[in-house]
Amino acid sequence: MKLTITRFNPSVDAKPYDQVFDVPTFENMTLLEAVMYVHENLEPISFDYTCRGRLCGRCSVMYDGIPVFACIQFVSEGSHTVAPLEGFPVIRDLIVDKRREQKAIADTYERVRIAPLTREEINSQMTTEAADKLRWIEYCCRCQVCTVICPAKKDTPQYMGPSRLLAVAYRHFDPYDQADRLLEAVAGGLWDCQMCGSCTKVCQNSPEIHHLDIWKELRADATARGLTVANPKGV
C-alpha cells in the first residue's frame, strides 16, 4: 500500500507536510502495524500507543480523513492517508496533546459527595438498574474520536462534546453522586446535541456505548425537571 503520513515537528517545520511510504501489507494488517513497519524499516515516526486493543485511545489518528484507532483499523492495498487526530495541538507527527480535554473529562468523572461512602451505603444505595447503565459507559476510553467528528461541537463550540457528556451521564446515573448532574448536562450543551448519532458511528467501543439512548434519557430527565431551552436541537 502507499501510506501517506502527515509529518510535523512544530518546533522546526513551518507547517505539516506529507510523506509517502511503500508498505507491504499482509492479511488482517492494522494501521498501527503499518506505521510500525515504517518506523522499524524506513524512517522514524513519532506515534503513540500503549494497549493495542481499544482500551486507552492513545493511538487515535485520522485514517483517510476519519478518526479511528490505529490498533484495530485494518488497512488495505491502494493509497491511504494517516494524519494526527484533528483539533488538537500536534506534539510531533501523529502524537497530539489531548491533555486539556482529558483533564476536563477526568474532573467531570470525579464524584461529588458531602462525605465518603460507608460500606452500608455502598451496598444499600445502588440498584441493578443503575449498575446496568453504568457498566457500559465504563468502556468509554476518552479518546476524543467522537468529539472530533461531532457536528454539534463544530456548530456550537461551547458544547462540551459527547465524551465529556458521557462523563456527566455516568455520574447522573451513579446513585452515590450528590451533585446536580442534569443541570451540568444542560449547561454543558445537552440540547445543543443534534442527535445525529455520528458519535456512535465512529466510536471504537460501540458494542457497549449507545450514545443516543443515553442522550435521550438525559433529555427526558431534564424535561421532567423543566430544564429545557428555547431552541433545542435534534428533537
Binding site: R111, S124, M126, A131
Partner: peptide
Amino acid sequence: INWGETLNDRNPDGSI
C-alpha cells in the same frame, strides 16, 4: 469506591 468506582456487578438487592 470512594476513589470514584461504582463496581457495577451487583446482586439483585444492589449490594456488591
